[in-house]
């Protein structure tokens, strides 16, 4: 006999259902953890990232000596943590002589590593070192804007990859409706050279401009740092294809014979087949209209006429 196991409480069931694959995914959770050794800078970087993503990130505070994302066999416990916490993004910090202030940002697909970017942190300024008006502080969980500046993000493969990863890491929940008044933060990424990116976090100030579009003003609120791209691993091509699959149910079917006009609105075309009036049977078959009766009647009349003559 096969054993089946189901959650015993409703809460557990809901929790399990939350983790199930969904047609439309809402947002990715981030796991923040570090290796055996971290520097003071890196600790602040990790906690700043945690604060930026508060609500959708989990921070581990223990040392992890078995995690080496780029080496084979070093990702097993990372994948396990991803499964355990249901996170599909991770930020792993480590510090060594060879790679000081090392930050590995990676994504997982189906709880297996999808891609990795290794960054070195330089010229770091933490959130606390910035002073600004209290009103300006971005609210928790607000949708950020992104700006990427520099041709490197298009021409250099590493930076192109980094751009996608940073976007995935900080964009938060995918939304369709947005309150424009709630815009209050921007991530500004500038490519300084082929492997160096300046990354800062700014608050947005909407100023009156006389038109409906307000004038934007950026105020740096930190963290701000230079990211030096070290190693990176692109996703496997087949895995990439699979992960980019669009659900069949969500693709809209092409609407035929309908067009939209700015003045007339929705315009539909209707095709009518040729009406074959002669061959059509009349819907109302009253007794008198029936063919047999009519014919019989006519016959009877003909006989009568014969008899008369």
């Amino acid at each position: 006999m096969l054993q089946i196991k189901t959650p015993k409480t409703g809460r557990a069931r809901r929790e399990v259902q939350k983790r199930a694959p969904k047609l439309v995914e809402s947002g990715k959770k981030t796991l923040i953890l570090h290796g055996t050794k971290t520097s003071d800078v890196l600790n602040t970087v990790l906690s700043d990232i945690y604060h930026l993503k508060k609500g959708e990130s989990i921070k581990y505070s223990r040392k992890n000596d078995s995690i080496r994302p780029f080496e084979s066999g070093g990702e097993t416990s990372l994948e396990f943590f991803s499964l355990k916490t249901d996170c599909s993004l991770f930020v792993f910090g480590s510090h060594s002589k060879k790679r000081p202030n090392n930050l590995v940002i990676g994504r997982t697909y189906d709880h297996h590593i999808y891609d990795l970017v290794e960054l070195g942190v330089e010229n770091f300024k933490s959130m606390e070192s910035f002073s600004y008006g209290r009103k300006l502080a971005p609210r928790l969980g607000s949708k950020p804007l992104f700006t990427f500046i520099g041709e490197g993000f298009e021409s250099v493969e590493e930076l192109k990859h980094l751009k996608e990863v940073l976007l995935d890491l900080f964009r938060g929940e995918a939304v369709s409706n947005l309150n424009i008044a709630g815009l209050d933060r921007v991530y500004v990424c500038t490519a300084l050279s082929s492997n160096k990116v300046l990354f800062t976090h700014c608050a947005l100030r909407l100023k009156k401009s006389g038109t409906i579009i307000p004038r934007m003003e950026l105020v740096e609120v930190g963290p701000s740092m230079d990211l030096l791209v070290r190693r990176h691993r692109l996703p496997d091509e087949s895995l990439r294809k699979e992960s980019m699959k669009k659900p069949h149910e969500l693709t809209k079917k092409k609407e035929k014979n309908v067009s939209r006009d700015s003045i007339q609105g929705k315009i539909g075309k209707i095709y009518m087949p040729d009406q074959q009036v002669g061959e059509k049977v009349l819907p109302n078959k009253a007794k008198g209209v029936k063919r047999e009766r009519r014919e019989a009647k006519m016959k009877g009349e003909a006989k009568k006429q014969k008899q008369d003559s």
Binding site: P21, E25, S88, R107, Y109, Y114, E164, D168, L178, S243
Partner: peptide, 16 residues
């Protein structure tokens, strides 16, 4: 109402 994003990002889990 925001339009669909043009930069496509990978899913986190396979399709159900």
């Amino acid at each position: 109402t925001l339009p669909q994003p043009t930069t496509r990002l990978p899913r986190e889990k396979p399709l159900p």
